[in-house]
Nucleic acid binder design. Structure first.
Lengths: 327, 327
DNA sequence: ACAAAAAGTGGGATCGATTTCAATTGATAA
DNA sequence: TTATCAATTGAAATCGATCCCACTTTTTGT
């Protein structure tokens, strides 16, 4: 494969000049054209490794999410990638499966790649022990954040969103409401807090279950909840993955929504609007989350000293059939 | 950030020796331990750019898919990534949106990154003009392949799968069957061919529509099909994304399946089993596709000379409620 | 027309690792 | 004890680009 020296020779200039053409340095139009012709003729492709080594900047950001199969994260990733690309940056995408070991491994990988910055949706465990300074690059958290560690972050107003679901169910006439929350993310905790707050405000108990963030775990948990002597009349479910489990549990128990159990949850995944008269959900501004995270990262790179900030975005309640009045 | 020289100094050895520790070269246990201690103390992270430049191998493969939001591709990606990781390789994931310009751009990117190989789901347009030799790295195609260009590939037996859907619908008593296929991929073409073949074998006409591979395009197309004077009694739909559009069209037209229109398609996306009594689909062996592609790529790297082969995997018909007998 | 400033170009060091080759050490056998 | 050989180690070249500095050419101002 042709290298810069070959191009230089072919164009009758020095390697320095070829490099200047590559980097839009000061080159006369005549020479630039000669060099570009040579590049085309030799089918030259700059070697990124060499470029990054010498220039000491990679123009690459890391995006570490817990599960790319979760439509929430695919949508956010998509937005991050588009935005990154528009700013001349590449993205390295990583899946952690909510596994702290994998998180540590990928953070180390990011260091080895000398990424410019990282956008990260960490588990509670990792978020507690994270030292962004030691990492050597700025980190913007998404979806999840910690109250203690101060980092840039883009999150949903989870308490309010969860409370909105509860208020909606209450307004529809439901009282006996139970919650299902993920146990690995701060998000699950926040949503639980909002759930409890709103229920207490209404003077109601707030029974809740915490489960591993998988369809199977949720299905199992909901199945037992539904089999209990006094089963709840409505369910608030903490995210799209768990909601899928809840729906499966209801179906396999032969229960209908909202007739037998009302449903309300998070994430406007494509299928939620197709089930019966639709599932009531909080729609997250996924595109905005991705774009905001990328924007924050760029600002941080611009000014490493500015104080960390947290962008809190609001969800949007989509009231659909699964939470229709008890009738 | 510490470099190899610093580690060498701290451990009282030469940089060469540190490098040998890094690469599992011949080093005495005593020295190895000293070096490893020094690395830990300095929090050393090898610089991948430098390593790749010098060693001339990146241990990185490219994975170019058309849409990471399509569950088929997310699932395949996941399998590829896991398999790659198990073989000590990194993956660069790219989205093309079925856009040939983006495909060209990402192929160029792969060259600049000097990837070891690429797994690629190309559009028909690109597949026709692809010259794997000129690219400089081996390419394994997934999901799609060309009859002309000879490359390693992993594909579904699309004709047979489509025919299986038709046969199933025929067995259930349906005759008036129409098809909806994507117009950018060879896959759509193959499935169409299988559809036509099976219909002709039954002595039936095979009306078909080709649409852009988006939910909206499919919804629009199906909506007009359903509004036509003699609307089909059953629909064969070429993939999960289009199926989503078809379902939306049916719902908005107030039609039920299978009572008004029977449905059968591809991709066992999570939601397909939740809709009514489930959607009849061909389940693709997504994990196997990803693993097979990665395996083929490794074999090809092992032996660049061996003749190209195509792995054809079989889909599995999941007969569900949407194709129940006409009653 | 001449000095000063600006623009364009080339030479050579450099980024941080690996790799080749030579040197040294230690172990083994005669 | 000494020659031989394998196992370790170090010195220096190298990967392919960028970047600093010096030099030449052109432009500008007076």
């Amino acid at each position: 494969m042709a290298k810069i020296k070959d191009v230089a020779a072919a164009a009758g200039v020095s390697p320095s000049t070829v490099s200047r053409v590559l980097c839009n340095g000061p080159v006369s139009d005549k020479v630039r054209k000669r060099v570009e012709d040579a590049m085309r003729k030799l089918d030259y492709r700059p070697n990124m490794a060499a470029r990054r080594l010498r220039s000491q900047h990679t123009d690459t950001i890391g995006l570490i999410v817990s599960d790319i199969r979760n439509p929430f994260f695919t949508a956010v990733s998509r937005a991050v990638e588009d935005e990154a690309y528009r700013n001349g940056m590449r993205v390295i995408l990583c899946n952690t499966d909510e596994n702290p070991d994998k998180e540590a491994m990928y953070l180390r990988l990011m260091q080895e790649e000398r990424v410019t910055g990282v956008i990260f949706a960490p588990t509670r465990q990792t978020v507690a022990s994270l030292d962004p300074v030691a990492l050597g690059f700025p980190v913007v958290m998404i979806d999840r954040a910690s109250r203690d560690v101060i980092t840039d972050a883009v999150v949903l107003d989870n308490r309010r969103a969860a409370a909105a679901l509860v208020d909606h169910l209450l307004a529809q006439g439901y009282r006996d409401i139970a919650g299902v929350f993920g146990n690995t993310s701060s998000t699950g905790m926040e949503r639980h807090a909002g759930f409890v707050e709103a229920m207490q405000l209404a003077g109601l108990p707030a029974p809740a279950q915490f489960v591993a963030p998988s369809v199977e775990a949720a299905e199992q948990a909901v199945r037992t909840m539904l089999a209990a002597p006094q089963r709840p009349r409505a369910l608030v479910v903490s995210n799209g993955v768990l909601m899928l489990g809840a729906v499966r549990a209801l179906k396999s128990a032969g229960l209908q929504w909202p007739q037998d159990v009302a449903l309300a949850g998070f994430d406007n995944d494509v299928w939620t609007e197709l089930l019966g008269d639709g599932l009531t959900v909080i729609e997250q501004p996924v595109g905005e989350i991705g774009r905001a995270a990328m924007a924050m990262l760029l600002e941080r790179l611009d000014d490493p000293e500015r104080s960390p900030r947290i962008v809190v975005l609001q969800g949007k309640l989509l009231a659909r059939g699964s939470s229709a009045p008890a009738g």
